[in-house]
Design a protein around this nucleic acid. Structure first.
Lengths: 137, 137
DNA sequence: GTAGGAGTTAAAGTGCACTCGAGGTCAAGC
DNA sequence: GCTTGACCTCGAGTGCACTTTAACTCCTAC
């Protein structure tokens, strides 16, 4: 398989595949006259990386995860991440409430709205929005 | 109010306040011998920015939001964002399921796990993990 | 033999939301 | 008059996950 075929089959760009190799998320592919050749295992390896990425792991964590797969040392990593994800879900529910509030808001200007916010939901908001979500759609 | 006081009252760093001013998220504060002086309205303005930030708006969106507050043009923005947030919440629920799966996983090596993933939950995962969450805690 | 297309590398660039550092200004206190 | 400390501006740096660019190589077809 060439890198273009692998790219097509995985939906990952060729540059991202090269990047993953460089970052040691997937093993270094053998070369034929300088070019990478991939076999079926590359598909599985990339599936794992994408799964982990979709589960919210950073690439640094994924590197650790794939290198420590055999000895189960990655399990505490997954458990820690599960807590983080649940926390993020909680924050998202609060974001939803904030947005619903904002959509219903009748304030005539920004300062008035700010005043209303500070008086009515100070205790709900403060110390909650520490970790941010970046919602790139 | 000096920038240090405003920083203390809002919990925002002084450099972040200066940055918000530069980016026109809050109005340019008047200066006394070169230094910014703030009044109570700054508190409200920053409350609005933080609310929006906590609701997941980018700073570019917040700039638009505060500049268009009076004429209700920000309402469609909020509605669009609400959809994004609900979408993100959905993805997070999937991430939770993926992590729970991963924690229960009995695979002996990465490729086998990848094979299992591709065969068992391909339809659940594909085309869902497009937008990523960055879970900075 | 040469044009074209697909691949290679290393290095630099991107976007976001800030933070940091250098070098300068200003008022108060000793 | 001098130090101290809070503030100023401007430009550069940060972290992540890539993408883009430049210059080069290799194989195939004509």
């Amino acid at each position: 398989m060439t890198i273009a075929e692998l790219s097509r089959k995985t939906g990952l760009s060729a540059s991202a595949i090269r990047y993953y190799e460089k970052e040691r998320l997937i093993p270094t592919a053998p070369r034929r006259s300088g070019r990478r050749i991939f076999d079926g295992r590359a598909l599985e390896q990339i599936a794992v990386v994408r799964l982990a990425r979709d589960a919210g792991f950073t690439l640094a964590e994924i590197r650790q995860l794939v290198s420590e797969f055999r000895n189960n040392r990655w399990r505490p990593l997954a458990e820690r991440k599960l807590i983080e994800v649940r926390d993020a879900a909680l924050r998202l529910r609060q974001m939803t409430r904030i947005l619903e509030r904002l959509i219903e808001c009748q304030c005539a200007d920004v300062e008035f709205c700010g005043r209303a916010i500070r008086h009515s939901c100070r205790e709900r908001i403060r110390r909650k929005g520490k970790g941010r979500e970046s919602l790139r759609p």
